[in-house]
Design a protein around this nucleic acid. Sequence first.
DNA 1: AAATGTGTACAGTTTAAACTGTACGTAAAT
DNA 2: ATTTACGTACAGTTTAAACTGTACACATTT
Lengths: 160, 160
Amino acid sequence: MFEHTGEYIKNDMIIEFSKTLEMFDLNQSEARLFAFMYLSNKPLTLDDMSEALGKSKTSMSTSARSLTELKLISPVWKKGVRKDLYQANPQLFKIFMMTYIDKWVDASKSQKEGLEKIKRQIHEQEALPNMEDRLEEVIEFHRQIEQFFACMKQEHSSLK
Amino acid sequence: MFEHTGEYIKNDMIIEFSKTLEMFDLNQSEARLFAFMYLSNKPLTLDDMSEALGKSKTSMSTSARSLTELKLISPVWKKGVRKDLYQANPQLFKIFMMTYIDKWVDASKSQKEGLEKIKRQIHEQEALPNMEDRLEEVIEFHRQIEQFFACMKQEHSSLK
DNA sequence: AAATGTGTACAGTTTAAACTGTACGTAAAT
DNA sequence: ATTTACGTACAGTTTAAACTGTACACATTT
């Protein structure tokens, strides 16, 4: 009976925690899986995950792969166990923030470059002359984003 | 012919700029509409938007409403014009960053509270005792997020 | 008061993402 | 060498989001 209640409570925890994880651009499936794995705090098989979350094994396999690529979980080797085991990485804040900030800096930089290329086009072809100013403002916007997050990163890494 | 080329270039600009806007949690429709409006830099009717983006007027109406609620665009009144007019707000960086940071702080706070409530439940019912530690770590994670973004906000508002 | 123009609620459709079950390749166990 | 167990590619299905067209309410113009 306690066991029963416990299951419900754990499920609530997973749902609540995963909301935050979704803000770091995990999809719902990935977020719930990571939440479950982090709270379980031990190596888990695909079958464990599948049973606990009520999703297919294929789905777990897919999400586990994504989470591994994001370095949020890691494969674990255990002698005598045939099934693949995965465990959530610790240092929640460090890993999530780092990954997140990097994503912003990279994306913003790449989009800024795209816009600068367009700016040159406009200039050369003498098209849309009235739009050059506005475009420059948008590029400046990207510069500020980059700078802001780069600054965040520095601060973050000096903290921990 | 220049006009023709110009249209393509403007379209490229919209697509590139809107990628960045999507990172601020606008959906594609909202992002493209805002990009178009910002680059146009003048009051626009729903018909203008509809024609420029090749989407239905209903769709424009919906997106324009969302953008207004987000305070990213504003209704504009112009004597003698029956149609509703909207114009993109300036100060890109300030508005986007502020809104974005606030969203994080609020969401993180709310989710932290949810988790604290669950923690009390576990304690009272003496269920899942082995999970209390892990839950505490997750709550700590939320504290750090809150603190981090609150700090960012302060820094940001002191800048501009 | 009637007629026209405008924005949006709503139902239905299209489109894309998430998920599942089957089938198969690979590796371990017999 | 054969059998069994496991993970995942792939095709098909379910689910949810985005979009459209019609209809209507409200306001402005005749």
